[in-house]
Measured scan of single mutants.
Amino acid sequence: EPLWIRPDAPSRCTWQLGRPASESPHHHTAPAKSPKILPDILKKIGDTPMVRINKIGKKFGLKCELLAKCEFFNAGGSVKDRISLRMIEDAERDGTLKPGDTIIEPTSGNTGIGLALAAAVRGYRCIIVMPEKMSSEKVDVLRALGAEIVRTPTNARFDSPESHVGVAWRLKNEIPNSHILDQYRNASNPLAHYDTTADEILQQCDGKLDMLVASVGTGGTITGIARKLKEKCPGCRIIGVDPEGSILAEPEELNQTEQTTYEVEGIGYDFIPTVLDRTVVDKWFKSNDEEAFTFARMLIAQEGLLCGGSAGSTVAVAVKAAQELQEGQRCVVILPDSVRNYMTKFLSDRWMLQKGFLKEEDLTEKKPWWWHLRVQELGLSAPLTVLPTITCGHTIEILREKGFDQAPVVDEAGVILGMVTLGNMLSSLLAGKVQPSDQVGKVIYKQFKQIRLTDTLGRLSHILEMDHFALVVHEQIQYHSTGKSSQRQMVFGVVTAIDLLNFVAAQERDQK
């Protein structure tokens, strides 16, 4: 057995438009009618409502009807409940999964919650491996369901041993009777949507819809739904939504950006999952974080739909894509998950301010006199920076000697690579993860907040409520011999709460 199987392995699926269902090699399930009293909570997966979006479509000038398939009504709160249950049931049916076995899954959280929910009911041990950027709410729900959680670096490539995929496979090879159901490759993922989600949409719309818009992560949702719609409703256009920084969209030119990270969760990847059939997507749109969270908040405030950030991405694209539809036509959007997962993220004004998705003037509360002053007023001194090749031991000596707790790590040209902190280095040394002679590049981390000289002290204040420091950066445009230009970030300084307090105190003292 291989040590790991690539999540982007070539698909062996034989589905073709027009091929009889009787030739399918898979076990198919028909939607079942729910009894009045459910035998367990797993029976509350599927049969989610279709809700008309009344205000947002009109606000953006849509002539067509805009409908939302509300997947956050599933038992675990997301569309991923469907595939989690289906993968477990299919693994039980073919004898792969037996009582007492362990389920391991690399996930952005929602599939993990679905699997942990099913594992709690069915009696399996469950280990979820997820990147650090995923919300604390997801972690809390997983723990409450009895799952064990392993976190991995957000910026690790999918084929790196440190990625959530790599760590999951390492655990599988170490733990007896453990299984990775593997949402990236498992046919049960798109089949769950082909058999149930798509049929529900067709039934709820009486077979009449002209466009379907869905955000894409593993691709199982859009693949399964689109294949069924292509068979039953061939005139329906399928629109895929991919965040900026991901590479799922086609044509490839759409993916060209210097951005590699994004805040919206559960969609987009740096590889093409095996289950994603991009041939059934008629057109791709890219979405960005700001519009995703703005539209998610709009869905909550104006439509009462308590959905997550990827739902915002989907609707932001839908109001663009559906401009081509006329009166009497219908566009369906998939709202994948609930706001429950993001209470401390985009639902929080403070978080939105820190990330730059909300401006101070958007909030009406009274601010102190210094709130709208610029960061450049602080008069920061030149920063202490270190090269990635310097040793951890030497870096600790320098920081202690100069009285700093942290320093930016830059390359020879001064471009920011990340940050090192005294606390992080000492804990890594004590844990045996690094040696004093190791290069400081081994303990770089990139989960820090950046701020510009033109940003306000109010925004800085919000950042420092949650973080010990902020890195002050400025952009530099560099022209190359080819005539092309590129933008790079340079370090201007490091600012802490002490710097802000000293500035405010000094100004008030001078005024007296």
Rank of each mutant, 00 (worst) to 15 (best):
V410N: 10
G309A: 07
T385N: 15
L399D: 01
I416G: 10
H462V: 13
V332R: 03
H462P: 06
G240H: 01
Y269N: 01
H480D: 09
G309L: 01
K355V: 06
H462R: 08
S287K: 11
F346I: 11
K366F: 07
V280D: 11
L373M: 07
E361H: 04
R278Y: 06
T389H: 13
A318T: 11
L254I: 01
F346S: 04
A497Y: 09
Q256F: 09
A316F: 11
E258F: 11
N255E: 07
V440N: 14
S485G: 07
E401Y: 10
L378W: 04
G312C: 14
E244R: 01
E244F: 05
V473S: 12
V317A: 03
I444P: 15
A322S: 15
D411M: 15
E365H: 13
M298W: 10
G356Y: 07
S437M: 14
L453Y: 06
V264H: 04
A316L: 13
Q487R: 12
A296V: 06
Q406T: 10
S287N: 08
R488V: 14
L353D: 01
A316M: 01
K449I: 06
L417V: 12
V443F: 14
T261D: 07
R488T: 08
T344F: 01
T364M: 10
P408Y: 01
Y445S: 10
I477N: 14
Y262V: 05
K442I: 13
Q450I: 14
D438W: 15
L464V: 13
G458A: 15
L347V: 01
K355M: 10
V264G: 01
Q256D: 04
K449W: 12
E265F: 03
E252G: 09
K484F: 14
S310P: 01
M352A: 04
V386F: 10
K442S: 07
W284M: 01
A318E: 04
V491C: 13
L453F: 12
D242G: 01
G356T: 07
V386K: 10
E412I: 13
E360V: 10
V440C: 12
K320I: 10
H462S: 11
E253D: 13
F357Q: 12
R340L: 06
L358I: 01
L353C: 12
L429T: 01
A301S: 04
S313F: 01
S481G: 15
H468R: 11
Q323P: 01
Q489T: 15
V315M: 09
K446R: 13
V241A: 03
W369R: 01
K359I: 13
E377L: 10
L305C: 07
E252L: 12
G483H: 11
G414S: 13
L417E: 06
N341R: 04
Y445N: 08
F346Y: 06
G393R: 11
Q376S: 08
Q256W: 11
M425G: 07
I463V: 12
V472I: 01
L305G: 01
L325H: 01
D438T: 07
L353N: 04
T274E: 01
H474D: 06
K283H: 01
V333Y: 06
S338F: 06
L422P: 04
F271T: 01
R340C: 04
W284S: 03
A292T: 14
G441M: 09
L501T: 01
L417I: 14
T389Y: 10
F271S: 01
V280A: 10
K442W: 10
V415E: 12
V491P: 09
K442R: 12
P436V: 12
A505Y: 13
R278K: 13
L299V: 14
G308Y: 03
Q447N: 10
A431V: 11
P251Y: 06
P251A: 08
E252I: 06
D242R: 06
G356A: 06
V473W: 08
A292S: 07
F295L: 09
A382F: 14
T389W: 05
E360H: 03
G240A: 13
N424G: 13
N255R: 06
D349N: 12
K484C: 14
D362M: 08
K359E: 14
D411I: 10
S428V: 12
P408H: 03
E244P: 10
T421I: 11
Q511Y: 14
F285V: 15
V410K: 06
K446G: 07
R374L: 15
V420R: 01
C392Y: 11
R297Y: 01
Y262A: 04
D467N: 13
V491Y: 08
Q507R: 12
V386S: 08
S287D: 01
K359P: 01
Y479I: 10
K286V: 03
G245F: 01
M466L: 11
E401I: 15
L471D: 01
N341H: 01
A292Q: 01
R340T: 01
E250L: 11
Q302A: 04
P383C: 07
C307Y: 01
K367C: 15
T279G: 08
T454W: 14
H394P: 11
P383S: 13
G432N: 13
K433M: 10
G245L: 01
V440E: 04
E360M: 09
I416Q: 05
R452M: 14
K286G: 01
G432V: 10
E361Y: 10
K345S: 05
D405F: 11
F448C: 13
E327M: 01
I267P: 08
E475T: 01
G432I: 12
A322C: 08
F469G: 11
E324S: 08
V317C: 09
E290V: 10
D510C: 13
S348T: 15
E252C: 01
L457S: 01
I444G: 11
E465G: 13
G308V: 01
A321C: 13
E365Y: 08
L453G: 07
V440Y: 05
Y269V: 01
S348A: 13
E377T: 01
E465V: 15
A505G: 12
S481F: 12
T496D: 05
H480V: 09
A301P: 01
M298Y: 15
D362L: 09
T454L: 07
E361W: 13
L387A: 08
L325Q: 11
Q259C: 08
S481T: 15
D362F: 13
G432L: 12
G393M: 11
E361R: 15
R297Q: 08
D499S: 04
F448Y: 13
I498V: 15
R459F: 11
S313G: 09
F448N: 15
K449S: 08
E250F: 07
R330D: 13
G356I: 13
L335H: 01
G458S: 13
S287M: 08
V332A: 11
N424D: 13
I390E: 07
V420H: 01
K433T: 09
A296N: 04
